[in-house]
Amino acid sequence: MYSNAYIFRYASIMVILVAAVLSAAAMLLKPLQQRNEAVDKMQSILSAAGIHDVAAEDAIRIFNENITNMIVIDNKGNVVDDYTGEGKEKSRAFRINLKDELYKKSQNRDFELAMYVINLNGELIYIIPLRGVGLWGPVWGNIALKDDFNTVVGVTFGHKSETPGLGAEIETPIFEDQFPGKTLFDEQGTFKSIRVIKGGVANLPSAAQLHAVDAITGGTITSNGVGDMLKNVLESYEPYFKNQG
């Protein structure tokens, strides 16, 4: 029979050993993991601007070749940081944690936002990272705008755990291809965002059709989440857009 002291010793040593092994593994693998996350983010940013299917090995090179500016703005629309050098994955704009910044926004505190500028065949395209909530977990994405800060060039969406076949359809081309050509502002310059609506865009008055896309059947809460995400994030950029216009 084992004594209590033996059991305690055994458990303590085991726990300390396991903790040491796991911490060592986490520290050793961290650089690789962070690189993978950065590559994934870059692929998504490039894809929103229309550069699809970038291989993971080339992502950092292609990202640095194409992206010209990494901009950080504050909530009053002022440019805080504008990085144009090499190694854009280390820039301040790339490292901004949108989740934290949106939390600050919800608390009415000052916050900062990122924006990536890409020069595609002489045309400047502005890419804005998005983040919101779906039904089961976070949803995120990127939206690319023309230099009028109004017309959408493209979007990509992603999600953590939306229902396959329903909410998860937001990351399919069927949903994403509705966005190019839509506009954020109406003719009077009022911010309209892009709504994700039930009942069919085709049934709306023609002026409103530019500010709406069809929701996903059976994915109401995810669709609403995407609509809220677009409005919540893009309205924060409105002061900046106004400053530029």
Binding site: M14, V15, V18, V21, L22, A25, A26, L29, L32, Q33, N36, E37, V39, D40, A56
Partner: peptide, 19 residues
């Protein structure tokens, strides 16, 4: 503890090499 430690290791390795 043994299983959990191994699974965490596998998870970390997957995240690092087949993201």
């Amino acid at each position: 503890v043994v299983i959990a430690a191994l699974v965490i290791l596998v998870d970390q390795v997957l995240k690092a090499f087949v993201y």
